[in-house]
């Protein structure tokens, strides 16, 4: 390996890593007999930029928000961020029927309780 080759290699740019600041969005949590309902503020996030994963009792919500910019910035309070939040999901949640809708920058996440998880009376038998 010649010396010039060594120099050329060392000048390659480093791997580009995600540099968006991670922000925890505010969340309201509600519950009724049928489901747990989350309201998450995600202003400026497109539907396609939201990823919701449920695995091993953990619900991971992550979304990327990029704000369009044009011209000279006079001031900037809204930044490009990655929204990220992780919730512990009780086992009684029917993972297959979780649904979500997005309206006006608010994500509504419905986590239905599975039928089997309702309160149950245990009958005691005498042996």
């Amino acid at each position: 390996m010649s010396e010039s080759e060594i120099i050329a290699r060392s000048e390659q740019p480093a791997d580009v890593v995600s540099q968006l600041p991670t922000v925890a969005p505010p969340v309201d949590t509600f519950e009724n007999e049928k489901e747990i309902l989350l309201h998450v503020d995600l202003p400026g996030v497109q539907k396609d930029a939201i990823v919701i994963n449920i695995d091993n009792g953990k619900l991971t919500l992550s979304a990327v928000r990029s704000v369009p910019t044009a011209g000279a910035q006079a001031w900037r309070e809204i930044a490009d961020v990655q929204f990220r939040r992780i919730f512990a999901v009780p086992q009684s949640i029917d993972v297959n029927n979780v649904r979500a809708e997005l309206k006006d920058g608010v994500l509504c996440l419905h986590l239905p309780k599975s039928e089997a998880a309702g309160p149950r009376q245990i009958e005691i038998t005498t042996g």
């Binding site: 044009a70 000279a72 910035q73 001031w75 900037r76």
Partner: peptide
């Protein structure tokens, strides 16, 4: 908010 100046317009988000 964000405010930017695009020459002919001001844009506020």
């Amino acid at each position: 908010t964000n405010l930017s100046d695009t020459g002919d317009n001001l844009e506020l988000f």
